[in-house]
Structures are given as C-alpha cells and as structure tokens.
Amino acid sequence: MSLTTTPLSLFSHARPVAAATGAALLVLLGGALAAQPAQAAVNPTIHMTHGVEYMSGGIGQDEAQLMETVSPRWPASFEFAIKDGRRADFAAGVHVTVRDSHGTALLDNVVSGGPFMVARLEPGRYEVEARIGGQTLRQTLQVSPGAPAKAVFEWPAGTDMASAGTRTVR
C-alpha cells in the first residue's frame, strides 16, 4: 500500500459490493455526526395563570441565550440579579407578582425558574413585585403595543438568598 492510498482503496481487495457498502457507511456516519448539534437548548415550559402566559429560565449559558433571544417577542420581560458593583449573580427562585392597574394579581407569587422571565401582558400599566428571601423590590412597568417592556430587578450584595438560587456573571 502506498502513502497516496485513498480510504476507498482500502476496500479494493474486497468485493465491489462490500467496498461500496463500507464507503456508504463512512459517508452516512460522518454526515450523521456532523448534523448533530453540540447541545440543543430546550425551551423552558410556558405556563399560564389567570389567562397570562409566562415562561422563565436562563440557567446555563444555552438557556440564558435562548431567553435573551426570545424576550423581544414577548410584551414584558424581567431580569433578576444580585450586584456588588463589580459582578452580578443572576438570581433564580424569585417570587414574582404582577398586578394590573386595578390591583388584580395576574401573576400571583409565581417562582422564576431562572434569572429571566417573560410574560404576555396586554398593553397597560402594571405593578411588579419581585421577592428574594425577605427582600421585595417593586417597579412600575408600562407595556405598549408592539414595543416590548423590560424591568430589571437588582438586589444589593448580601441579600438573603435562603430561598433562591444564584449564578455568577462576570
């Protein structure tokens, strides 16, 4: 065998059918491996309460990227973090309540599955509460037609994380 031997010539001593079968197997195997994604991100589950769809997640780089990609397609998005000035810990397990302008809770104490949450809220003004441990932050959120609204909740370093999870971001 010479140094210029091609992979197909390795089968030259076998019958032509075996050579073709071996070559086809190599092509199929190579194509199948190339077609597989390194790791496919799975969409977090969409939940519904009081007629409002919402989704939360962002644990892990793939899921965080997915949540950031889909958030502009949802009328409202929320982000949760604990900051100390130089770095941030993304927070999960945040208890979220969203009330409409009449004070009716549309999302009532739902727990985020990660540092990002999106919701299909109708245009209007909402009061949003986000709670980690014993510390609650409140913001007003104005949802306008065709323009996604975002609220970022940042607790100071040292926030009691007894009932929530975190992930450091640098």
Rank of each mutant, 00 (worst) to 15 (best):
M1Q: 12
M1G: 14
T4P: 05
T5F: 13
T5R: 15
L8H: 12
F11R: 03
S12G: 13
S12D: 11
S12M: 12
V17P: 04
A18M: 11
A18P: 03
A18K: 09
A19I: 03
G22M: 14
A23D: 03
A24G: 10
L25H: 00
L25W: 03
L28S: 12
L28G: 09
L29V: 06
G31F: 13
G31T: 09
A32P: 00
L33R: 08
A34C: 15
Q36R: 14
Q36I: 11
P37L: 14
A41C: 13
A41V: 15
A41L: 11
N43V: 08
N43Y: 05
I46H: 01
G51T: 02
V52P: 01
V52D: 01
E53Q: 07
M55N: 01
M55R: 02
S56T: 05
G57F: 04
D62F: 11
D62H: 11
D62K: 07
D62R: 11
E63N: 10
E63P: 04
A64P: 00
A64L: 08
Q65L: 11
L66C: 03
E68L: 08
S71W: 14
S71H: 15
R73D: 10
K83G: 09
G85L: 00
R87C: 08
A88L: 05
D89S: 07
D89G: 03
A92D: 10
A92K: 01
V94Y: 02
R99Q: 15
R99V: 07
D100S: 05
S101D: 14
S101C: 13
H102Y: 09
G103F: 10
G103I: 14
A105D: 14
L107K: 00
N109R: 11
N109D: 11
V110K: 02
S112R: 03
G113C: 08
G114H: 04
G114A: 04
G114Y: 01
P115I: 07
P115Y: 10
F116T: 05
F116W: 04
M117L: 15
M117P: 05
A119H: 02
L121T: 01
E122F: 12
P123T: 11
Y126H: 14
E127Y: 06
E127G: 06
V128T: 06
V128R: 05
E129M: 09
A130H: 02
R131H: 05
R131M: 10
I132R: 01
I132Q: 01
G133K: 02
G134D: 04
G134Q: 03
L137W: 09
L137A: 06
R138M: 08
Q139R: 13
Q139W: 06
Q139L: 10
Q142I: 03
V143E: 00
V143Y: 00
S144T: 08
S144C: 13
G146F: 07
A147Y: 08
A147H: 14
A147S: 13
A151W: 00
A151D: 01
A151C: 02
V152L: 12
V152T: 10
V152R: 13
F153K: 00
F153G: 03
E154H: 11
A157G: 11
G158K: 08
M161K: 06
M161Q: 09
S163C: 05
T166Y: 06
R167L: 13
V169W: 13
R170Q: 03
